[in-house]
Design a binder for these strands. Structure first.
Length: 197
DNA sequence: AGCGTGATCTTT
DNA sequence: AAGATCACGCTG
């Protein structure tokens, strides 16, 4: 399958969140360790009207990468433990990103099991913190792009509309009503969603 | 259902 | 300088 080029990411954030479903996220580590996961759950975060978006009060040191070109990785640290992996969207100087919330492990599973200290496949990448850890992603990946040697996405057939689910986003307290979570219906590798109250 | 854990941002 | 918040995950 072919590598997705930069134009693939130059679409509105919500569309990108949906069209990324089913695609294969790839990381190549030194020693030719290939890690691959199929994206099964995403969320859109968009601009200054979305109060759950880090950029809703404007540019800061932490969120500045969100204003970069589409296809830049935005990785940040939270809850004293976890890194979150996002793919930047929207034209340069406007803030938007797609949070990758869950993947189905595809390749490099032994490596991921070691990173995560579990052998339960459905638990390896079923959450944003978990998948970053499985892929050994941390703050050093912040700002890299997704068309390179280290990180890229492989194409896969588009998801039929009938297989795509939509809901509100997980784990947020503001802008809770926006239905900006996208996922593959009935997929076994989805996150355990903590629905906002 | 409760809590660890630490960076970031807001408020004083 | 202090306090609140947090796009979570694990235990129990």
């Amino acid at each position: 399958m072919s590598k997705l080029e930069k134009q693939f990411f130059e679409i509105p954030t919500l569309e990108l969140a949906e069209t990324l479903l089913g695609k294969i996220f790839v990381r190549i580590l030194p020693g030719n360790i290939q890690l691959k996961g199929r994206i099964v759950e995403t969320e859109a975060y968009l601009g200054e009207d979305d109060e759950a978006c880090h950029a809703w009060r404007g540019k800061t040191k932490r969120n500045q990468i969100m204003y970069h070109a589409p296809g830049t990785l935005y990785v940040y640290f939270t809850y004293g433990n976890h890194y979150m992996l996002n793919i930047v969207s929207e034209p340069e100087n406007r803030a938007g990103a797609v949070l990758i919330r869950a993947m189905e492990p595809v390749e490099g599973i032994r490596f991921m099991e070691e990173q995560r200290d579990t052998r339960i496949l459905a638990n390896l990448m079923s959450g944003p913190g978990k998948l970053a850890k499985a892929l050994a992603i941390d703050g050093k990946s912040n700002g890299k792009n997704i068309f390179g040697e280290e990180f890229f996405v492989e194409d896969a057939p588009a998801m039929p509309e009938s297989m795509v689910g939509t809901s509100v986003r997980a784990g947020i307290s503001r802008s809770r009503e926006l239905p900006w979570r996208k996922f593959i219906l009935d997929n076994p590798y989805l996150s355990k969603v903590r629905l906002p109250e």
